[in-house]
Design a binder for these strands. Structure first.
Lengths: 344, 344
DNA sequence: CTGTTAGCGCATTCAA
DNA sequence: TTGAATGCGCTAACAG
């Protein structure tokens, strides 16, 4: 007697309810399996009558196609991997949210991998995720291990590096120059008459690029001193409070504090508030990120707006365009805007 | 002549580099495919010598096993679906981050689906995601469409409802009672002597449950009036600012403002600061969430801490335990804590 | 427009 | 400890 298939074995078991397959749906609908498949995924290839009938049966039976099998057969997974430092940071979360919204709309799903700002962890996650054969990959930043770069180069699937621009794109890049942010901040606020700057930052590679560019530019503009508090991740509101406390302990307290994120800036405002410091009269505060699309800046706060939402949409679009077979630009500068507080 | 397989066709094409398969690795290593598979996934079944040799070949060739095929064959996807309102809200993001960290550690990957607080959208996403045959599912809250409930009931895979507790668990629940939060807030602050309360909230179902419980309890305690500003999502810092502005326009400005999230509370602080209001002397502010693990409350702010990190870990653990075949508790109350500001 | 055939790449089952 | 056979559920290719 023939060996029993696993499905048959499971049936005998009785307790376990097995998911339906195309075959069973086809049987119920009186068509072949492929017709069911087509009715679901390529409706134009099926006559209206059969299509409707098949779809009715599908609905009635509650059939959910097995995408693992489908992906295997078609070598299209409709899966996009997104690797980012952490989701628990609004600046990244906003971009991911935008990417996912756009992808979901287009019928893709997102596999998220949190790298914790570490290229090694990124490499590890990449290995694990590539096994799912994603149709596209989104990475954060331009810093990747040689192994990661090699893998991706050999792979021939669309890759977007978000958040940053560099000379050596893996494939596509969507972001802006963090150096330019630093330079712009320096020039703008020096022109406004500020001389005593202070920085409160977490130890994120991109934030540090901004900080160093700022510092260099300030030196060039005749301001040699830049007190900088670099605190460990994660970037919470608390970091801003501590940072300000430390800056104020220094001999020359700053007139202007530049923060590596809006979250930190809010902490600074809270701390300043509990110390009775008026903002911006006694202390100007500048954030970074502006995930609320221009609504972050207020009479009390300035910020650098990176329009995370737009960046996310463009990342998704770049991927989708490429998946649709279009040629797409290698590098897309989404820019940033310095949104200044109203004068008080 | 025999019809060509798709793989053969792709080879002819020339341009496309196909991913390696077990077969090719086996060939290179001089063993059978199944030995390669075992060396990778069940090393104890292979002799040390062959194992090392095979793994060396795998590494050298850069072989990445196709998990789509593996999952199909083994009916284990090592995928967990997480459906949540939005990732762009630190309170949810923190929980997801914790869940993912724990899952990644255990070799699982997370499929994220943003439902935008809508049960209908949740249902839709569920349908789409079930096709990937996830080994487990995490839902947010206890409000699901009948169709979703039916699907999940028929499915026989572990489900965790996070963030809330209810009488009708789908499977497992990990969360706390939002009604209790409202009651606790009312009792605590009335006992502290506050009489003029105000609420600033977004229109999130769980937040509204807290608000209504608060209101009911206040009425019972002899405080009939509760000015409440319910603003549309998303819960940004800006919402807090606007909310406070509106509350202050009312005839009797509050002494105490309860916010539906810490983000809103920060907005309130910023707005109060720019109006010269001292916190908490002139205005007490209470947040909700405390994603920074007890570091959110400060001299200026109180908050309700839900320990999102712990909740996430428990959600993941409940899932992993069940996947490991253990019986697990149906309902786990992770509680909350009211962290009050220092007296000023 | 519909059906038949033949895999996709892997892991389970059984046999050696 | 290793291997051969088989099928997981679906869709691409081809034929009618």
């Amino acid at each position: 007697m023939a060996r029993k298939s696993r499905r048959e074995l499971a049936q005998l078991d009785g307790t376990t309810e097995l998911p339906l397959t195309v075959r069973e749906v086809a049987l119920a609908a009186g068509v072949s399996p492929i017709t069911v498949s087509r009715a679901l995924h390529r409706p134009s290839l099926v006559s209206a009558a059969t299509r409707e009938h098949v779809l009715a049966v599908v609905k009635e039976l509650g059939y959910v196609p097995n995408l693992l099998a489908g992906s295997l057969a078609s070598s299209k997974s409709r899966l996009v991997a997104i690797l980012l430092p952490t989701i628990a940071n609004s600046i990244y979360a906003t971009v991911v949210q935008a990417i996912m919204d756009r992808l979901t709309e287009a019928g893709y799903q997102a596999l998220i991998g949190p790298t914790g700002y570490s290229p090694e962890k990124e490499e590890e996650l990449l290995e694990a995720i590539l096994g799912r054969r994603p149709d596209g990959i989104v990475l954060t930043g331009t810093l990747h291990t040689p192994a990661s770069r090699a893998r991706l180069a050999a792979l021939n699937i669309p890759v977007v590096e978000a958040w940053d621009l560099s000379a050596e794109a893996l494939d596509m890049q969507v972001g802006f120059s963090h150096e330019q942010v630093g330079v712009a901040l320096a020039e703008h606020f020096v022109a406004r008459g500020y001389r005593r700057f202070g920085v409160i930052s977490v130890d994120d590679p991109r934030a540090m690029r901004r900080n160093l560019a700022l510092q260099a530019r300030l030196v060039a503009l005749g301001i040699p001193e830049l007190p900088m508090e670099v605190l460990p991740l994660p970037a919470t509101w608390e970091v801003g409070r501590i940072g300000l406390a430390r800056l104020l302990e220094r001999p020359e307290p700053p007139e202007l504090v530049l923060c590596s994120s809006d979250t930190l800036a809010l902490g600074v405002v809270a701390e300043a508030s509990s110390r009775g410091l008026r903002i911006p009269a006694q202390l100007a505060v500048v954030g970074f990120g502006d995930t609320t699309n221009g609504r972050f800046a207020t009479p009390a706060l300035s910020t650098v707006s990176v329009n995370a939402d737009a960046m996310g949409q463009r990342v998704a679009q770049a991927l989708l365009d490429r998946l649709a077979g279009e040629q797409t630009a290698v590098s897309l500068d989404t820019g940033f805007a310095l949104i200044e507080r109203q004068s008080s």
